[in-house]
Design a protein around this nucleic acid. Structure first.
Lengths: 154, 154
DNA sequence: GCTTGAACCTGTAGTTACTACAGGTGCCAT
DNA sequence: ATGGCACCTGTAGTAACTACAGGTTCAAGC
């Protein structure tokens, strides 16, 4: 419960999220509607700032808004049972681990490439292999990301 | 240079990328147009399969298509100088490190939450703090992610 | 060879997640 | 009071897909 109050422009600058995006998030329910001044201007507080930063970072990490909605639902448990919380966190944790693994591989390939690059011409870069997987691993994707949907079966 | 040949439906199933999405990627130039049969049907090979998997994973990791385009440009150097390659990789590596750091924090919070959850009611979850940062850290974001744009200055 | 149903094609339209703009009001420093 | 910037709502557009329509191709089965 912070005591600082912000208009939307300040919240936008502090969080790096566009004003229109903030209003969009409010419209779709990911951000709670804040209190207003008599002149209808939004007034945000520290909780809003934290929440919005979380949303932005989650998006940058590749989580869909629905996934972020799920995660935000864990803030106070929101009437979930412990079994529900556990099932949810297990799925998200598996997804996170896979992302970390992929990112590290990508980082390594890029690091190696930069290290080999000293004026003799650009070396071949095995970047495609950084995020490829064996057919088996490909088939077991764990919790899906809605952003890239599965092919329709016809 | 693989010798297997796939129609688009098989490529879609193997990579988990939707048929229409594959065509979209071809249209915007992220995937090269493959050869066709006499009947105008696309014929893909192993290189296409690798490239598409890379694109999918990059999207799931929160990279924009333009960032992915950049990264794919490193595959054969594509006429880049070593200085250009270095500048590019340094920026991407910094971004990747930040993502890894955030993901690990999120994983830890979720892991702790699940560990505390044993039937006595759902504990408070400090999930918002996992991806929040100090005002200073917020101001220095390194390579931006185009998906969440900055607020317009007016 | 013919039939049939699934896979493929192109093009158009819609959804999600933003992003920009227009026209108006509110706020605050001078 | 004035003026300029911040804010409002609503509409439209962009990025990144996703779905559908109407047509062609392909290949298995008879």
């Amino acid at each position: 419960m912070g005591d600082r109050r912000y208009p939307i422009g300040v919240l936008s600058r502090e969080t790096g999220v566009n004003i229109e995006t903030i209003r969009y998030y409010e419209r779709i329910g990911v951000m709670p509607a804040p209190p207003r001044t008599e002149g209808r201007q939004r007034v945000y507080d520290e909780d809003h700032l934290k929440r919005l930063t979380f949303i932005r970072r989650g998006r940058e990490l590749g989580f869909t808004l629905d996934q972020i909605r799920d995660l935000l639902g864990l803030v106070r448990g929101h009437g979930l049972t412990c079994a529900e919380v556990k099932a949810m966190t297990v799925g998200h944790v598996a997804d996170i681990r896979r992302k970390v693994k992929d990112l590290k591989r990508l980082e390594r390939v890029l690091g190696d490439l930069a290290a080999q690059c000293h004026g003799k011409g650009v070396p071949d870069c095995p970047i495609l292999d950084a995020l490829s997987a064996t057919p088996g691993a490909m088939a077991s994707r764990g919790m899906g990301n809605g952003a890239i949907a599965k092919s329709r079966r016809r």
